[in-house]
Design a protein around this nucleic acid. Sequence first.
DNA 1: AATAGGTCCAACCGCGGCGAG
DNA 2: GCTCGCCGCGGTTGGACCTAT
Length: 325
Amino acid sequence: MGRSPSRSSDISLKKGPWTLEEDKKLIDYIQKHGKGSWQKLPNKAGLNRCGKSCRLRWTNYLRPDIKRGNFSSDEEQIIIDLHSLHGNSVINKDTTCAYRWSTIASHLPGRSDNEIKNFWNTNLRKKLLRSGIEPKTHQPISDLNLLFNLLPTSINPWENALEFHADQVNQKIQVLQNILKVLSTRPLPNTGANCLGESYNLIQAGGCINGIDPLQLQELSYPLSPNLGSIESAPERFGAIYMNSMETIPENLVNQTNGIRSTSNEEYSLPVLVPAATETCTANLMNSISSMHIPNQTIASNCIETWGNLIDDDASSYLWKEIYL
DNA sequence: AATAGGTCCAACCGCGGCGAG
DNA sequence: GCTCGCCGCGGTTGGACCTAT
């Protein structure tokens, strides 16, 4: 399998930003003679550039049908949909659809693959992350560290009071939901209690810190539909389930240690969370946790600390109140 | 007003696929 | 079957621009 020799070492060829004069030469040549061989084009057009550079300049910037300006919401949605469809780029001889960005670009007339790639990396990727979605898999985020990083550290309470958007509430819930999903499948080696016990520890700790009923916090771990209406009805829909399940834990099976409760019997664990992620996603998540090489107790305490930070501020208090009003 | 840090995007780079000889 | 040269891909970089302090 041959490979083209690197031309990066050829210092006689110009690199960097294109000048107006170079652009004009390239446009004039292609308009008169067509593209032909990119390798031979620079010489013929009188350009001191490599063929690759000319091709890139033409396809990404100079070709007449190129569309400039911001992406519309329709284009945005198409990119997200196609990206979830095509996934990561895998070069495969047996498939006709091997390239992600070029395939997506073919569905968006006037947009280059480079432009779409840049738009994805600078806008859409972050947008999905903020929504608790893993951009690569389009599944709920499975990386525990990433999840914690996504938790907002501070939100302007005045802004909250005036302009609290439903999607912000949902995004926050999605992140919390994912965290609980992670914790809800991790065993606690020291106590013998299962992960749900750990989730409960976490929630209980959060409740202790902020004076909020931990049961209410736990309700947040249930997936909610992406509209505020479902959030408003959450306590009615899930509250009873939780109250019932919690009431079944006999007091003698609940330990009190440093203000943190933990169940000592799997039988009395909290209900299994409704899956927010696919089985594959959850498996990846568990692998991710395994690879962290952090003692369980450390994770638990980190969680508690993070959770405490999350809810122990004015803005977040406002959030919880907002959800349960 | 100055400047440090963050964001965006055009362009570059290295690599793999593929056709021709 | 192997080598060579070209094409085009995804990932990365560097500098211009923007924003916050």
